[in-house]
Write a protein that binds this DNA or RNA. Structure first.
Lengths: 331, 331
DNA sequence: AACGTTGACGTCAGCGTTGACGTAAGAGGG
DNA sequence: CCCTCTTACGTCAACGCTGACGTCAACGTT
């Protein structure tokens, strides 16, 4: 079977031979260093163009012990939150000419370990990671081994790690205030099965409700539509008085809404529904879903900016992006 | 400004020194070659474990002139079709221990060029590409330079290229048959602004309708929800007799449905709506959308399988996956 | 006993690049 | 005219790994 037919890629040596200089000089021109005349520069560039020379990034990465590539690791991809985040990461990365390794862990710690190891083996410059590592020991170990990381919606105190998060405490507070303002008195929250440090939504909601003198029923469930539906059905069976459900993400909110409607109740008249993330879906279902809007693309861009800072040697401030409650029909 | 704190990674030489053999022997063990005793193997593996040795994939890629990494390039990511495809690609890739470069082109040919060049500079083994290159000259040029590619839903006759597609001609035929069966006589199709060779949906629909003696109104529009909405509004204004709209993808179908409803018409009583792809959204809107279901994850897995074949030297058969019409409320 | 064969290693070079350092020619200063 | 400095290069080694090939002891064969 024929191997890939390919005109062998031109190297520095080929370019150098063509111009009649040493490879080192070509390297200098290509990398924008100094130490060559304008005339030489022109001739080198012409040869680069003619031979369609492109630096071998593996060789460069090998001596520099770090490639220009970064990793992007997320837990799932069927929640539109993540594609939107990925778009921001990709766009910002491209603007800086960076190539990106990509992996979905399916919330499996073993997979997370595998992909981070693999990325390290490729000498990535750093990684943007959305992890659900419960104790952060794994992340800490990678950081100890020298992997620089930007954690999305998570924090870890380590010189190789910085953080980009979302002000979900405030978002949840806004939700609570809104629900109280529209007269709800028996709210429930479907919180995600995330690590406790990621439960700012839960704290913001319950603490604000408590301040209003309103008790909250809380359930911890999987972050999927199906889990939201099942949980809401049980919730309503056990607590028929519930008149508002705040879900950790929009998919769960949609699931909850279906459960509510399946019991013959009306949204929002009988039960108000509020989601979180502001994915496109929330606009198009009936009734449309009130949600905490997160600028996911901006979150991705910010993560890239922080990573570039981190890998260039400085220590970026943790970022916390603001959120906005978008009131629609469901609450 | 501290550089990344890192315990220098162990190399073959470190492992060899620890065991008391040559690096070449360690390499042999690590790569599962032959030529060492079982006792040596044990000792090497123990040292590998103890030093947490991981091969430097840049160095390996440099000598082999090809890394174990492959590229995955798509045009957009806000259409859930692509995340689902990505999930299949990622999962299958991971099963084979492959790391994946990822890029979104936003249908910009310049970006497509940039990312493919960048990936080639990283000596990727091959790429899975969903392109909208109108004339395929760019793809052909990359193939000529030696890049092995699997095209998704596209074909190109070149020894370095193979293809994984979807039987959308048949899908469109099923749609046409169904619409005729439920008594529609004035169908329209919102086709995408894709290259002609990707218009099998259009041909399948019109040819089948023609066979039924039914004329078809056709519009070519952008593959987005918004474009679908605008196009359907115009269509209904100019052709109020239209009683069925088949859209190239589900997002356009949803846009069309909104336009229909905005004119006071009812779906499906006044106008039937059929989409394509079978994204989750179609189940949850009201009315739920009849659509051609594509197994996107399988498509992704298949693409990986073909790429692995292609890069290992054989010439995989073009694959065409079957589709299934899922009849819901909208038609 | 001489000889080929096999297994289990080791040696060496080189993939393409860049860091560190060397050098020769010209400019500028005293 | 000598000395120093700068500019514009070139040389060499090394990054970590593996392909090609060499070596040496143990074994089996005639």
């Amino acid at each position: 079977m024929a191997a890939a037919h390919s005109a062998a890629r031109a190297t520095l040596i080929d370019v150098a031979a063509k111009v009649g200089v040493s490879p080192r000089t070509v390297s200098r021109v290509v990398n924008g260093e100094t130490g060559f005349s304008e005339a030489t520069r022109q001739r080198v560039l012409a040869a680069v163009d003619e031979l369609d020379y492109q630096p071998n990034l593996l060789a460069r990465g090998l001596i520099r012990n770090s490639s220009d590539t970064f990793g992007f690791v997320i837990t799932m991809i069927d929640d539109p939150f993540f594609p939107d985040l990925a778009l921001g990461v990709q766009t910002a990365g491209l603007e800086h000419g960076r190539t990106m390794f990509f992996a979905v862990t399916n919330r499996d710690p073993a997979v997370e370990e595998q992909v981070l190891r693999s990325m390290m083996a490729h000498s990535i410059a750093g990684a943007i990671v959305f992890s659900e590592d419960h104790d952060q020991s794994k992340l800490a170990r990678f950081a100890d081994r020298g992997l620089q990381m930007v954690l999305v919606d998570d924090v870890l105190d380590h010189p190789n790690v910085c953080s980009v998060s979302i002000d979900l405490y405030d978002g949840a507070r806004q939700v609570a205030d809104h629900l109280v303002a529209v007269g709800r008195t028996n709210p429930a929250i479907l919180s995600g099965s995330s690590p406790p440090r990621k439960q700012r939504r839960l704290r913001g909601f319950t603490e604000t409700m408590t301040a209003h003198g309103v008790p909250v029923i809380s359930r911890s469930v999987d972050l999927t539509l199906e889990a939201g539906e099942v949980a809401a059905r049980q919730l309503l069976a056990e607590h028929p008085e519930v008149d508002a459900i705040f879900a950790f993400n929009d998919l769960m909110a949609l699931g909850a809404m279906r459960a509510v409607q399946a019991t013959g109740r009306t949204v929002p008249d009988d039960v108000a529904i509020v989601g979180c993330d502001g994915i496109q879906l929330t606009e198009f279902v009936n009734p449309s879903i009130t949600t905490i809007h997160i600028d996911r693309e901006r979150l991705g861009r910010t993560a890239v900016a922080s990573l570039l800072e981190l890998t260039s040697g400085s220590n970026p401030e943790p970022v916390v992006l603001p959120v906005e409650l978008v009131v629609r029909e469901s609450a």
